[in-house]
């Protein structure tokens, strides 16, 4: 009887442990809609998650970056401008530490959207990338029209960016890093000025990459 009991406990804890290991997944953030449909006479419910709307911007190498170019990558998005005196340098420094961890892994990409397209021309963005020590195509610094960038910040990434003459730099924006999966769904948001949260982002990137790895198996 005693043996049976301990066996039961052991197998239960093993199951629990196994469950934990295989089902570590990131939540899917944003709005969701459900749609009911009939399949072979049975009612099924489909869930539609909020995704990043289609976009097309130019990066520091004058290459077009759109939904298609990120098909096989997860990516981290943020909003910045090169002459920003407030939170941007800290954000760039923290993003740089994430970039350095995944440098060379094309499954992880970075999109930094400039919210000051008047000043941040392609050569300005290129110089900024170079001086930051960013090479290659993994990290794109994006130029788009002001409205399209502000729009995707608000409606796509649940971020905000707007002009405000009262603050240094003339544009205010939130400092979030947004983690987006291969299906363009938002899987995490992290304060880009906070070292601890940036560490959480790194952990979550690993978890997300693992989701794809175990799905492949």
């Amino acid at each position: 009887m005693k043996i049976l009991k301990s066996l039961l406990v052991a197998s239960a804890s093993f199951l629990l442990f196994a469950c934990n290991q295989h089902h570590e997944k990131l939540p899917i953030l944003g709005e969701r809609q459900t749609m009911e449909r009939m399949v072979n006479g049975k009612l099924e419910v489909d869930t539609f998650y909020q995704t990043i709307p289609a976009f097309s911007f130019m990066n520091q190498d004058s290459a077009i970056i759109n939904n298609d170019s990120l098909k096989n990558s997860i990516y981290i998005a943020d909003f910045f401008f090169t002459s920003c005196p407030s939170i941007c340098p800290i954000m760039s420094k923290n993003m740089l530490s994430v970039y350095q961890k995944y440098k060379g892994n094309n499954e992880v990409r970075f999109l930094s959207h400039s919210i000051d397209p008047k000043h941040d021309s392609i050569p300005v963005l290129k110089k900024y990338a170079n001086k930051l020590g960013v090479t290659g195509t993994q990290w794109s610094f994006l130029l788009g029209s002001r409205d399209s960038i502000y729009n995707i910040a608000r409606n796509g990434y649940m971020n905000y960016a707007q002009e405000n003459e009262k603050i240094p730099g003339g544009v205010e924006h939130s400092g979030y890093f947004i983690l987006v999966d291969k299906d363009k769904r938002i899987r995490g948001a992290y304060d880009g000025t906070n070292k601890e949260q940036v560490e959480n982002l790194k952990t979550d990137i690993d978890i997300l990459l693992n989701e794809y790895k175990s799905a492949k198996k």
Partner: peptide, 8 residues
């Protein structure tokens, strides 16, 4: 005090 790349 470490600055930022070759920018700061």
């Amino acid at each position: 005090g470490s600055g930022l790349g070759k920018l700061i």
